[in-house]
Lab assay of single mutants.
Amino acid sequence: MEVRTIKVFTTVDNINLHTQVVDMSMTYGQQFGPTYLDGADVTKIKPHNSHEGKTFYVLPNDDTLRVEAFEYYHTTDPSFLGRYMSALNHTKKWKYPQVNGLTSIKWADNNCYLATALLTLQQIELKFNPPALQDAYYRARAGEAANFCALILAYCNKTVGELGDVRETMSYLFQHANLDSCKRVLNVVCKTCGQQQTTLKGVEAVMYMGTLSYEQFKKGVQIPCTCGKQATKYLVQQESPFVMMSAPPAQYELKHGTFTCASEYTGNYQCGHYKHITSKETLYCIDGALLTKSSEYKGPITDVFYKENSYTTTIK
C-alpha cells in the first residue's frame, strides 16, 4: 500500500517557510505537534488534498525554529505562539472599519479597549522592536488589523473576551517599542525636605499616572512627601515624541487643539466601556464603527496623549 502524501510549508514567522512532505494517514499533531492554519487549530486533523502548498504555523520545537521565533517575536515564552494563534482565530472574524481616516474595530468580545489602543497607536510616533509587531502594525494602518490585535493580546497575556485596560495595554506595548531616546527629568520640591531631581528613561519617561493635564504637570502637581507634608512635583525636561497622561476616570474637559487623542471610560472596574476622542479640525468621538463630532467635550476621561518633541522648564 502506497503512502499518500502532500507537500506543505511549516513556519513560526510566515517569513521562513520549511518544506514538509506530510503523510495523509496521520494527523498534523502526530507529525508536527500543535499546528495552526489561519489561526485555526488543526492539530487533530489529517492532511487533505486542499492543504497542498498551504502554510501551517507550528510551535518552535527545534533550534532553527526557536531562533526564527525569537528573532521575529522577541520572546522565548513557549506558550506565546499558541496564544497568538488562538487569538487570531477570533480577531480574523472582527470587522476593521476605516473611521475618520483611522483603522478602528467594530465592537465584539469586549474589544473596546483594543480599538482605543489601536486608534491611539496610529496617532503617536512609535516604532516597535519585534519585527512581528512592526509588520502587523503597518498592515493594521492599511486596514488589516487582525494579526496586530492578536499579537497585542498575546504580548499582554490576554484572551479574547476578557476586559482590558488601555493604560495597561499601552504599557505592555511600550515595553516592546523603541523608547531608548526618551528621557524625563522631574523635580520634587518640599518646604521641609528641599528639592530632589529624578531622571527617568524609556517607558517611565512617557507615562504618568495622577493627572490628565500635561500643562498642569509642567506647572506642578501636589504629591505627598515622605515627611508627610505636601510637596510639588513638576516637569523639568521632556525628550520624547509623545507623552501619555493618565488618571482614574473623572469628568474632564478636553479643549480642541490642546491634545492629540484621549480615552474615555464609562462604567466601573468590573464592567465598563471605552471610547476614543481625537482632536482634528474639530473633536471626534470614535466608538467602534461609530463616529460623532463636537466642538467641545466633557466626560469621564482616563488617558490623554500629547505630541511632544523637546521641553525644558522655565521655572527657576
Results as ranks from 00 to 15, higher is better:
Ser240Gln: 03
Leu179Trp: 06
Ser310Phe: 14
Gln134Ser: 09
Asn110His: 02
Arg66Leu: 10
Glu168His: 06
Gly288Val: 00
Gln123Pro: 00
Gln98Asn: 09
Ala145His: 01
Cys271Phe: 13
Glu52Gly: 10
Tyr28Arg: 01
Gly82Asp: 15
Ser104Val: 01
Met24Asp: 09
Gly210Cys: 03
Val42His: 06
Thr302Phe: 06
Val304Leu: 04
Thr10Ser: 10
Asn49Gly: 05
Tyr306Arg: 05
Leu59Lys: 12
Gln195Ser: 13
Gly202Phe: 03
Ser181His: 15
Leu235Glu: 04
Phe70Glu: 13
Gln122Lys: 00
Gly164Asp: 01
Tyr297Glu: 05
Phe305Thr: 05
Lys233Glu: 07
Leu200Glu: 11
Ala289Phe: 01
Lys191Asp: 09
Asn309Lys: 15
Tyr311Ser: 09
Thr282Trp: 07
Ser213Thr: 08
Met170Ile: 09
Ala142Pro: 00
Pro131Gly: 03
Ala142Val: 01
Thr232Asp: 07
Tyr265Asp: 04
Met209Trp: 13
Leu283Asp: 07
Ser181Cys: 11
Tyr138Val: 14
Asn16Gly: 07
Asn187Lys: 12
Val58Tyr: 02
Thr226Gln: 13
Val58Thr: 12
Pro241Ser: 15
Glu264Ala: 14
Leu254Cys: 05
Glu239Pro: 05
Leu212Ile: 04
Gln195Val: 12
Cys285Gln: 15
Val185Asp: 01
Met245Glu: 01
Thr103Ser: 06
Val203Met: 15
Thr258Val: 08
Val67Arg: 11
Asp303Ile: 07
Val189Lys: 12
Trp94Val: 00
Met24Leu: 15
Lys316Tyr: 13
Tyr138Thr: 13
Tyr36His: 01
Thr169Asp: 00
Leu163Lys: 15
His90Met: 10
Thr19Trp: 07
Asp287Leu: 00
Gln216Leu: 09
Met24Trp: 03
Asp23Trp: 13
Tyr172Trp: 11
Gln31Asn: 10
Tyr36Gln: 06
Phe305Ile: 11
Thr120Met: 08
Gln195Trp: 12
Lys127Val: 12
Leu254Ser: 02
Gly220Gln: 03
Gly228Lys: 05
Glu296Phe: 10
Val185His: 09
Asp109Tyr: 00
Thr266Glu: 14
Tyr214Gly: 06
Glu264His: 07
Val188Tyr: 08
Asp135Cys: 07
Gln98Asp: 10
Ala117Met: 12
Gly288Ala: 12
Ala150Leu: 00
Gly228Thr: 06
Thr91Cys: 15
Ala87Arg: 02
Thr313Tyr: 12
Pro78Glu: 15
Cys225Glu: 02
Cys149Met: 10
Ala40Leu: 12
Leu291Tyr: 12
Leu102Ile: 06
Tyr138Ile: 08
Trp107Ala: 15
Gly82Pro: 12
Asn110Met: 03
Tyr269Val: 06
Thr43Met: 08
Gln237Glu: 12
Asp180Cys: 08
Ser79Thr: 13
Thr75Leu: 01
Val3Asn: 06
Val99Met: 09
Asp63Gln: 09
Ala231Gly: 05
Thr75Ala: 09
Asn16Glu: 14
Arg66Ile: 13
Asn100Ala: 11
Thr232Val: 11
Lys95Gly: 08
Thr199His: 08
Thr169Tyr: 01
Thr313Asn: 13
Leu186Asn: 03
Ala247Phe: 02
Leu291Arg: 08
Asn16Arg: 10
Leu235Asp: 04
Lys316Val: 13
His48Gln: 13
Thr282Ser: 14
Tyr113Ile: 03
Val3Gly: 12
Ala154Phe: 03
Ala108Cys: 15
Asn89His: 08
Glu125Asn: 08
Leu179Asn: 00
Val160Gly: 02
Glu68Pro: 04
Ile45Met: 09
Leu212Asn: 01
Ala250Glu: 12
Val236Asn: 05
Tyr84Ala: 00
Asn187Thr: 10
Tyr113Asn: 03
Lys54Glu: 04
Glu308Trp: 07
Leu114Thr: 04
Gln30Pro: 06
Gly299Ala: 08
Met170Phe: 09
Pro300Ile: 14
Glu168Pro: 03
Leu37Trp: 10
Val166Tyr: 11
Thr159Asn: 14
Tyr96Cys: 02
Thr312His: 14
Cys112Gly: 14
Asn110Pro: 05
Leu254Arg: 02
Phe148Lys: 04
Thr11Ala: 02
Tyr252Asp: 03
Phe56Trp: 00
Gln222His: 08
Glu215Tyr: 05
Thr211Gln: 02
Met207Arg: 08
Leu37Glu: 15
Met170Arg: 00
Tyr297Asn: 03
Ser310Trp: 10
Ala142Arg: 12
Leu186Gly: 06
Asp23Gly: 10
Gln134Cys: 04
Tyr113Pro: 06
Ser295Tyr: 14
Tyr155Val: 01
Val12Lys: 00
Tyr306Val: 04
Pro130Ala: 04
Leu17Val: 06
Gly220Glu: 08
Ile223Phe: 07
Gly29Ala: 05
Ile45Arg: 14
Tyr138Ser: 10
Ile124Val: 06
Gly272Asp: 03
Ala177Phe: 06
Gly194Thr: 05
Asn16Pro: 01
Thr11Arg: 00
Leu163Ser: 10
Ala132Glu: 02
Thr103Cys: 02
Gly299Ser: 05
Glu68Gly: 02
Arg83Glu: 00
Leu65Arg: 05
Lys307Leu: 12
Thr43Ile: 09
Glu253Met: 12
Ser310Glu: 14
Val236Ile: 05
Ser181Val: 08
Tyr234Val: 12
